[in-house]
């Protein structure tokens, strides 16, 4: 089972992101469970959503407290919410930012985790470029797929096309693909597997 926790703010599409990730996994014939942090949060309030992906039926309903990956859609949360809480030592971190981990003053964090699994991506900028609007989710998911390999970028694109239609869908797919292209080749699961196979 691969468990992802997504942090953002109300209105940033955090819940939709988890849903899209689950649909991407579903399209790969896997089992997936996406759910929000249940609450009556208003626009701008910190929001969490979750996504579990597995090869068999997912029965558990507890919130994800020991995630395999965290996605931080809104970097302003970094120093307000314990976004890394419970993250496994070999876990992935994807942050929506133009800055590096060091620049984000997350240097210490890097020590505890595998550096090739930590990645920042300028998703909001990519969204502005491709969508004309600062909606970073598609870009984040594209990068996430590339970073973790838990789903393919193609599945993310298919999930986006299933959820949205027309030019909105295509623009989001382009943002996702562009973001995937920005993930350093040395990062993530693919690189790790190559290393093992070598």
């Amino acid at each position: 089972m691969f468990e992802t926790r997504i942090h953002g703010r109300g209105g940033q599409g955090v819940v939709t992101s988890a849903e899209l990730l689950s649909v991407a996994a579903f399209r790969e014939d896997r089992h997936a469970q996406a759910f929000p942090s249940f609450g009556s949060e208003r626009t701008g309030a910190p929001v969490i959503s979750f996504c579990r992906i597995d090869d068999r039926t997912i029965r558990t309903r507890e919130p994800i407290s020991l995630p395999d990956a965290v996605i931080i859609v809104d970097p302003t949360l970094l120093h307000h919410v314990d976004v890394f809480s419970g993250l496994r030592a070999d876990g992935y971190v994807l942050i929506n930012s133009t800055r590096s981990f060091a620049e984000l003053q997350l240097g210490e964090l890097c020590d505890g985790f595998r550096p090739e699994r930590l990645c920042t991506i300028p998703a909001t900028e990519l969204a502005r470029e491709h969508l004309g609007r600062p909606l970073p989710n598609a870009a984040m998911l594209g990068a996430f797929a590339q970073l973790t390999g838990v789903v393919t970028v193609e599945s993310v694109a298919a999930a986006i096309r299933q959820r949205f239609s027309g030019e909105v869908a295509e623009a989001n797919v382009r943002a996702a693909q562009a973001a995937a292209g920005l993930v350093p080749p040395s990062s993530g699961k693919a690189a790790q597997e190559e290393a093992i196979n070598a």
């Binding site: 988890a18 849903e19 689950s22 649909v23 579903f26 089992h31 997936a32 469970q33 996406a34 759910f35 929000p36 249940f38 997912i58 309903r61």
Partner: peptide, 12 residues
Amino acid sequence: MDGFILTHAVER
């Protein structure tokens, strides 16, 4: 059916 836990969960 459990509110949020089921009503808001996206699954197969």
